[in-house]
């Protein structure tokens, strides 16, 4: 029963990683950049939900919507101000800028909200499910997290597979020049990708803070790095890869904590990543593109 319990916790944590990893992987796929500020957008989402519930007494639904709206705009603004001017710059310059944006967001949060941790009230009001005479408890947060993850995955698959904008995103991610020759507005498409990724980060932030209710300016960093790992694990650029990578990472982390060592759980996570990359450098679902001449 304990194994089942851990598995459920792992899937739940992994679902949060997966939602964050989607943002990393979509942005990487389309802009070929690692947006290391992505984790901090999670934190901003958390603070937005926290402030609207604590200071404005909003209910959970409007609070989550506000968090999504603010993060979506934040994603677009950061891309426009920090990354767009570097579209032609070497990737190292973009990477360092992203790290700079990450510190900027953390320090801005430090200025606004201070360094003392805030206690986040869960936005999820689903009662815990007790199964097998109370031997197996599934928290409402876990249920909501996994459900959100599934809904997001289905919605994104439909979006990229069926809609014109979604297909344009795939076209831009493959070949910006050719996409522009089709009349696709590449800059707008990149903006949209940042918007979607950041909106998802807000959802991840709220879910994360509901499960682990301490909110600090650095709250987003570690989940951000883990989700990045998950995206690479699953094959960066691949949407299903991010989902699978995230969930596997969550399971590995929880099992590592439960059965091996609490202190070493992060080390185990990264060790698994290294092994996977040694065996399959493109990640689990990474695409190896062969040019046909």
């Amino acid at each position: 029963m304990a194994i089942l319990m851990n598995l459920i916790n792992g899937i739940s944590l992994g679902s949060v990683y997966a939602i964050i990893a989607l943002g990393y992987t979509m942005v990487y796929g389309i802009a070929k950049m690692l947006n290391f500020a992505h984790g901090d957008v999670i934190m901003v989402g958390g603070y937005m939900a926290f402030c609207s519930m604590t200071y404005l007494n909003w209910g959970p639904v409007p609070a989550v919507l506000l968090a999504i709206a603010v993060c979506t705009v934040l994603g677009i603004v950061v891309e426009r101000l920090a990354y767009k001017p570097l579209r032609q710059a070497p990737s190292l310059a973009v990477l360092i800028t992203a790290i700079g944006v990450s510190y900027f967001l953390q320090n801005a949060a430090l200025l606004i909200w201070g360094s003392d941790p805030k206690v986040f009230t869960s936005v999820i009001h689903i009662p815990s499910q007790r199964l097998f005479d109370g031997q197996l408890i599934i928290t409402g947060t876990a249920v909501a997290t996994v459900l959100s993850c599934v809904v997001i995955m289905i919605a994104l698959s439909l979006f990229t597979g069926k809609t014109k904008m979604g297909k344009a995103m795939r076209a831009v991610s493959e070949d910006k020049g050719a996409a522009q020759l089709m009349g696709i507005n590449v800059n707008f498409t990149i903006s949209m990708t940042f918007a979607i990724g950041s909106g998802l980060a807000a959802i991840a932030g709220v879910l994360l803070c509901s499960a682990y209710p301490t909110l600090m300016p650095t709250t987003g960093s570690m989940p951000g790095i883990k989700a990045f790992t998950a995206a690479v694990f699953g094959g960066i650029g691949s949407i299903p890869g991010a989902m699978i990578g995230g969930i596997l990472l969550g399971i590995i982390e929880i099992f590592g904590k439960a059965y091996i060592s609490t202190q070493l759980s992060d080390a185990i996570v990264f060790a698994v990543l290294i092994v996977v990359l040694l065996v399959k450098p493109t990640g689990l679902l990474g695409k190896q593109i062969r040019e046909k001449v």
């Binding site: 014109k164 297909k167 795939r170 076209a171 493959e174 020049g177 050719a178 020759l181 089709m182 009349g183």
Partner: peptide, 26 residues
Amino acid sequence: LAQVPEGRRVFLQMSVAENLEMGAFT
């Protein structure tokens, strides 16, 4: 004005029909 670029540059991971739809993007 439409261009068929050098090296074809079709979207390799998209289906034939999707490639054609992209051509009709506008």
